[in-house]
């Protein structure tokens, strides 16, 4: 068993409205007169466990609103979890002394979806990429320029352009700047949140190849978040399927694409347009992803599931192993066994 680099234990994230004094008082008075205050809390991520081992590429797939970005942000340390702990190399980041916690956080970096919004338009490329290593004192002053050039070159950018501003670059090049910025602090773990979704197909292929080269050269570990199953299948060793804040299935790539177990995964995979498929009939999963403010009881997928049973509405299924390394959260698996 190889070493775990990131481990999540019972991670949850809730977003609720923040009440000012007047609103709190109003709720308070309301409840005294027998009114139950409306529950407006969104459970974006609901009790997720995950272990990522060194060198692995884990794909995280789900529809918009399922909580995949929130989960990624918590792993990257941008957002604190409401519950649960995040372990970096076996140690809980929250309980580390400040210096060690900072080092651990630097080792986890994030690459964002929108290469236009994620770069400061008023900074030159040299400052965007160089700011973090300079502030953290990672590079001796005399070697700074060579270090910077090396970072840019590794991401496929010409160091001659380092005096330019982001608007002078195309979308694909901007994404490379974002990658160079993340790699400049020598991370071991990258969270890529829809990192190629905004790019044209030919540019997307260039960036995916870059990710694979970096993985090999720097021994990086990835959490690759995407709604594009084709991209995830190509890149990932293991795939997690998320639905309304919960992980419903987790398995090695070949296994999940070859033998999907959860009805949601099966429906999702059947909808993926594939270039091999010609002039097919499109069908649709019935209904839409429900609001996470009031998720359905029991198994969140039961109102849309073709094989739902009465039990599905009352009891939430847990992730159970259905084959070696293949876990699925569905009551149907109990019925068969």
């Amino acid at each position: 068993m190889s070493e775990s680099i990131i481990e999540l234990r019972g991670i949850s994230k809730r977003f609720g409205p923040s009440y000012d004094a007047a609103a709190r008082m109003a709720r308070d008075i309301g409840s005294r007169f027998g009114r139950t205050p409306k529950n407006e809390t969104v459970r974006a991520v609901d009790n997720v466990d995950l272990i990522v081992t060194r060198g692995e590429v884990v794909g995280l797939v789900g529809e918009s609103g399922c909580g995949k970005s929130t989960l990624g942000r918590m792993v990257a340390g941008i957002m604190p979890p409401s519950d649960g702990e995040i372990l970096f190399k076996g140690r809980d980041i929250a309980s580390l002394p400040p210096d060690a916690a900072k080092d651990a956080k630097l080792k986890v970096q994030m690459i964002f979806q929108d290469p236009y919004a994620s770069l400061n338009p008023r900074l030159r490329v040299a400052d965007i990429v160089g700011e973090a290593p300079r502030i953290h004192g990672m590079i001796p002053a005399g070697q700074f320029d060579t270090y910077l050039d090396e970072q840019l070159r590794r991401a496929g950018l010409d160091p001659a352009f380092k005096r330019r501003y982001p608007h002078q670059f195309s979308g694909g090049q901007r994404q490379r700047i974002g990658i160079a910025r993340a790699l400049a602090v020598q991370p071991e773990f990258l969270v890529c949140d829809e990192a190629v979704a905004a790019l044209d197909v030919s540019i997307q292929a260039q960036i995916l190849n870059l990710f694979m080269d970096l993985r090999r050269d720097l021994n990086l570990t990835y959490l690759f978040i995407s709604h594009d199953l084709g991209v995830v299948e190509h890149l990932s060793d293991r795939v997690l399927i998320m639905y309304l804040g919960r992980i419903v299935e987790s398995a090695p790539s070949e296994e999940i694409f070859g033998r999907p177990n959860h009805p949601y995964t099966q429906a999702l995979l059947s909808e993926v347009p594939r270039i091999e498929a010609r002039k097919r009939r499109f069908t649709a999963i019935k209904g839409e992803i429900p609001s996470p403010i009031a998720p359905p009881s029991g198994c969140h997928f039961h109102p849309r599931c073709p094989s739902a049973m009465p039990r599905c509405a009352s009891e939430a299924p847990t992730l159970k192993e259905v084959a070696p390394g293949h876990k699925s959260a569905c009551h149907l698996n109990d019925a068969i066994m």
Binding site: E63, L268, E271, F282, T283, I285, E288
Partner: peptide, 13 residues
């Protein structure tokens, strides 16, 4: 999303 895309493709088809 892919599931919504499939619904719309089914409509235009």
């Amino acid at each position: 999303d892919v599931t919504i895309q499939a619904q719309i493709l089914a409509e235009v088809q």
